[in-house]
Amino acid sequence: MNEQEFAQRLRQYRKDKGMTQQELADKLGVSNKTVSRWESGSYPDVATLVALARALGVTVDELLDPKTPVRTLQKSDWQNLLSFAFAIGGGLLFYLLGQFVPLPLCWMLYLGCLAYGIYLQAHYTYHTRWFQLGVWIMVLFVSGSVAGMLLTGAAVLFGISSAETFLTNQIGMLLQGDVDGRLLAVLLMWTMIWLILTAALGLLTAFVAKQLAREPASGSVLPNLAKEQLPRLCFRRASFHWSKAVPALAPLVLMGYWCLFWRDDLPGWLYVSQKELYLPVWAGISLLILLPLLKKGRRGLLIPAVLLALTSRGFSGLLVYPRAYSLISQKMVVDKTNGLLSGNHIYFGQAGAELMVFAVVLALLYLACCFLSIRYVPKEEKQEQSAAGEGDTF
C-alpha cells in the first residue's frame, strides 16, 4: 500500500469515528499539522502507529493492509452478546418454564436474568440502542403474559370456569353482530384493565431490574451517626406549578361522569352498563393524571396522586338511585316503590350531594399537598432554623 492509500484509509476511519483532525491530534499528543500531513500522504512512525490505531478503534493491520481483514471478536463483543443472552433470552426462558413452573418463580428468574443483562451492558460493554429496544419489547411481552394470567385467575375467582372459552364466545357474538352495548362495555373494560396492568408490570419490572443491576455503594447507606444527629422529617413550602395540580381534576371529572346520568336522553345501553363503563373511564383518567408527575422534581406527588385515584374508584358507593330504566318501554321511570320494581327495570346511579362534596374535598386536599414538601433535615440544621425563627421581631 502506498502513502495515498494509507492517507485515504486514515481519513475514512477518522470520519467514521466522528472526529476532527484536531480531536485526533489531541488524543495522540501531536499537532494538527501532523495529522494533516499523514492524511496528505506520509506515514507516522512505528510508535505513533499503534496509538493511532487505538484512537481510531481499529487494528494496525486495518490501517496498513488495503484488504480489510476479518475482525476478530473482542472481549467487549462477547460481553455484549452475553448481555443480550441474559436480558432477552431470559424472556424466552420465562415462556419455556411457564409450562410447568409456578408463575411467581418464573417472573423472579426472568427478573434476575434481566438485571444481570443490564448490569453487563452498563458496566462491561459498549452501550447500544438495540439492547434497550430488545429489553423493552421483551419486558412488555412478558408483562402482557403475566397480566393475562392474572386476569384469567381473577375470572375464575369471579365464577367463570374457563376464561378463554368465555372470551371466545363473547368475541364470536361480537363478530356475528349479536351484541349489545353492555357486552361492548365489558370487553372494553377487560381490555383497558389488561393494558393498564401490562404497563404497570412492565414499568415495575424495568425499575426493579435497574435497581438490582446497580453496583453497591461503598460503605453503609446511612453512616453511623449519633442519635441526636439522625435526620428528621421537616415540612417545607414547595413552589407551585400548574402541572402539579392536574391530578386534582380527576375527582371532578369522575364526578361529572356520574352527573351525566341526570339526563334522560342518553342511549339506553349507557344506563344499563354505567358501572362497567366507569372502570375504563376511571383507569384512563388515573393514568393520564400521573403522566405530568413523572417529570423530575414532581415525583414526590405520585403517592398522594395514586391515593387520590384509588379513593375516586369508590365513587360508585355514594350514588343515589331515584330512577330506573325500563327495558320494555326504554324510558326513565321514577322509583316510588323503594326498590321493588319488576325485573324489567334496571336501576342506575346518579351523583348526589354527598358525592359532589366528597369530590370537591378530595381535590382541595390534593391541592394542599402541592404546596408542601417533606424532606429529611439533620437535627442541627433544624435547630438553627428554629433559633433563627425565635430571634425574629415583628
Rank of each mutant, 00 (worst) to 15 (best):
K67Y: 01
T68G: 03
T68Y: 03
P69F: 06
V70N: 05
R71A: 11
T72A: 11
L73K: 00
L73T: 02
Q74T: 13
Q74L: 10
Q74S: 13
Q74G: 13
Q74E: 12
K75F: 12
K75N: 07
S76C: 05
S76P: 01
W78S: 02
Q79Y: 15
Q79N: 09
N80F: 15
L82Y: 05
A85Q: 03
A85E: 03
F86R: 01
F86P: 02
A87G: 02
A87P: 01
A87K: 00
A87Q: 00
G89F: 10
G89V: 03
G89H: 05
G90L: 06
G90Q: 04
G90P: 06
G91A: 15
G91I: 01
G91Y: 03
G91Q: 01
L92I: 07
L93N: 04
L93V: 09
L93C: 08
F94N: 03
F94R: 00
F94P: 03
F94C: 03
Y95P: 05
L96N: 02
G98N: 12
Q99N: 10
F100Q: 06
V101Y: 06
V101R: 01
P104G: 11
M108F: 13
M108K: 00
Y110N: 05
L111G: 06
L111N: 04
G112D: 04
A115L: 12
G117M: 02
I118L: 12
L120R: 06
L120N: 06
Q121V: 00
A122T: 11
H123W: 13
Y124W: 11
Y124V: 01
T125L: 06
T125C: 13
Y126A: 05
T128R: 02
T128V: 06
R129N: 14
R129V: 11
R129E: 13
W130E: 10
L133F: 04
L133V: 11
G134D: 07
V135S: 04
I137P: 00
V139N: 03
V139A: 03
L140W: 08
V142A: 06
V142M: 05
S143E: 08
S145L: 09
S145H: 14
A147L: 12
G148P: 08
G148N: 15
M149R: 13
L150Y: 11
L150I: 15
A154N: 11
A154K: 01
G159E: 12
G159D: 14
I160V: 15
S162A: 13
A163P: 13
